[in-house]
Design a protein around this nucleic acid. Structure first.
Lengths: 153, 153
DNA sequence: GCTATTATTTTGATAATGGAACAATTTGAC
DNA sequence: GTCAAATTGTTCCATTATCAAAATAATAGC
């Protein structure tokens, strides 16, 4: 693999994601949703619209502990983005849902990502997109291998 | 653009980077460098081997404030990864350099990224790599546009 | 009916961070 | 040459995100 190319791709991979978060955060500050951080938006995205997942499920998806999610949900309930729905079949579980305000920001965030992927894939045909998906899957496989918590299966 | 494909690429883009950080962090915990976090490693990577950049320069690269970097550097000096080199031409500047221990971890981190990019680009020819670089550049351009701090130039 | 298990919350500690005030140094206007 | 303004880095204070462990509440198995 060409050395300069490798350098540039590594550089892009490492900076671009931080930029995504930074731009999302800045956009929030200038929107009607000033009272919410990008991490909270990602929690809202994980809670999602229709499924009413449990606290543990969402925490696992977000890769944070249930305790951390509890405090996050406290804030999001206070700010009227999320609601707790105790499920009646097993009252240990807390099921999470979005309020109207939560759904609003959910859709705004979804739309940002749709535009982002569209621009990412601008001018590319299906074959080229397949290559990109393959590369990302390669990366995922590499990480799986490098992950010391799931080394040999 | 195929809807399922867009969905999958978005999913990969949003999860994979978090995984990179998580795996890097876990690998550190199991290495000889247990006393350092992934953010500190990235500070070391920004300080880099030979240039002796100033505090503000490095802070700008890392997108953090100089105050934050000062405390980070304090920790890294105490743990013997970084050294402060006052420059004699203008004594306001603090120039940052790596200790032997810092250079060791710098190279380990560099090697991780090299292996990562290699696996990312596995089985791809130069034309395909060019497509991937193009896609990442598209994404960068999108973010530039979406960035409310540098909107019209 | 107890006991063990499961889901969530609470509590206490820590790391990362920004912003504002501050100290040291240099520059530039006069 | 001197002093005010600008620049660089640091300190200090507050906030947010986070985890681990203890506590609480509910259920399941026997």
């Amino acid at each position: 693999m060409d050395y300069g190319r490798a350098k540039r791709i590594n550089q892009l991979l490492t900076t671009v994601y931080g930029e995504v978060l930074r731009v999302e955060e800045l956009a929030l500050r200038q929107s009607q949703f000033k009272d919410i951080s990008i991490k909270e938006v990602h929690a809202i995205a994980a809670i999602s619209m229709y499924e009413h997942k449990t606290t543990s499920q969402v925490a696992r998806e977000l890769r944070i502990t249930p305790g951390t999610l509890t405090t996050m949900v406290n804030h999001l309930v206070r700010k009227d983005y999320v609601q707790r729905l105790r499920s009646d079949d097993d009252r240990r579980f807390v099921r999470l849902g979005l309020t109207r305000r939560g759904r609003l920001i959910y859709r705004a965030h979804e739309s940002f990502h749709r535009r982002m992927v569209e621009s990412f894939a601008r001018d590319m045909d299906d074959e080229q997109l397949q290559i990109i998906e393959k590369a990302l899957l390669n990366l995922q496989a590499f990480l799986e291998l490098a992950d010391p918590t799931t080394p040999n299966k």
